[in-house]
């Protein structure tokens, strides 16, 4: 069958697009790679999405979005798209399991966490190095933890980790945080949180588990080795230094800027019938609230595009 709209990605942008598309009675398929939700699925608390008051967790918000989109008739499927042919009138998406055809495509593939890029990082992932506090926080009960980054995610996740860790040190390459002021205030008040300013991690070492890291002061160039407490044997490094757009599929096909898809106010990309929504496009604010807005606009524009380009 040829779907009216196929959405790649099931984070807030994709689910919102699915909800709007299905509600407009378009045949709608949402393709998700692994789990629904994207980055937000591993976020403990979503305090800045309007209406999500009283400790709404990321997973709770996502499951409501899924329920709502499916309630209007959007179909969800798990598959990994491996290649696309989107230049023709009917767009073809080749997945690991199946091939899909669509009149319009909404690319809501989101972004993936950036890595530090230092020696030892890859080998020690899951052995002390982590990118997901809700997944791995419990391992670090009564241990010491370092959080890399200075934005909202880094500081919020650092606070979440104080539930488990004995001490949490935020390692930031500047001398002040970039996180929202209200989040900063909470962090400065938290007795378990300490700061290492003007610092970056340049090396991670350990036999089996993370044992030693090298921290470089970017102002003085001085390098310091930090070892795990002898009784602990290990410590944690949680990395929240931003995200890379997940646009590999569309490289060389649609116009991009620094890896992000260029789209207009109507989420249109450089290819007719292909729309972008969420963290993977050029924009100034990447949040759940802007992702869902993108999704709604993309779906509405996809409907318009189909009306204009396909006869009944």
């Amino acid at each position: 069958m040829i779907y009216d709209v196929v959405i790649i990605g099931s984070g807030p942008a994709g689910l919102s697009a699915g909800l709007y598309a299905a509600r407009a009675r378009m045949s709608t398929l949402i393709i998700e790679k692994e789990a629904a939700g994207g980055q937000i699925a591993t976020t403990d608390e979503v305090a800045n999405y309007p209406g999500s008051v009283e400790n709404v967790t990321g997973p709770a918000l996502v499951s409501r979005m899924v329920e709502q989109a499916e309630g209007f008739g959007a179909k969800r499927i798990t598959d990994t798209i491996e290649s696309v042919d989107v230049t023709g009138k009917v767009k073809i998406l080749k997945g690991e399991n199946e091939e899909y055809q669509a009149k319009s495509v909404i690319v809501a593939t989101g972004a993936v966490p950036k890595h530090i890029g230092c020696p030892g990082e890859k080998e020690l992932t899951g052995r002390g190095v982590s990118y997901c506090a809700t997944c791995d926080g419990a391992f670090f009960e009564e241990l010491e933890v370092f959080v890399v980054g200075g934005g909202d995610s880094a500081v919020e996740e650092a606070m979440y980790l104080t539930k488990f860790a004995r001490k949490v040190t935020i390692v930031h390459r500047r001398d002040e945080l970039r996180a929202a002021k209200s989040i900063q205030e909470k962090a400065f008040k938290n007795e378990k949180i300490d700061f290492l300013w003007n610092s970056v991690i340049t090396d991670l070492k350990g036999d089996g588990l993370l044992e030693t890291m090298t921290v470089k002061n970017v102002k003085t160039g001085e390098e310091t080795e930090i070892h795990a407490d002898e009784d602990d044997g290990t410590f944690g490094v949680f990395v929240f230094i931003g995200y890379d757009p997940a646009n590999k599929l569309f490289e060389g096909l649609v116009e991009m800027e620094n890896g992000y898809i260029v789209s207009d106010d109507n989420m249109k990309t450089s290819i007719p019938g292909v729309f972008a929504a969420g963290d993977n496009r050029v924009k100034s604010l990447r949040q759940v609230v802007t992702a869902t807005a993108d999704g709604a606009i993309a779906a509405t524009q996809a409907e318009k595009y189909i009306e204009e380009n396909f006869e009944e």
Binding site: E34, A35, G58, P59, C132, T134, C135
Partner: peptide
């Protein structure tokens, strides 16, 4: 796995 690990539950 753990109950708070969403990627684990998805797998």
């Amino acid at each position: 796995w753990s109950p708070s690990c969403e990627p684990c539950k998805a797998l």
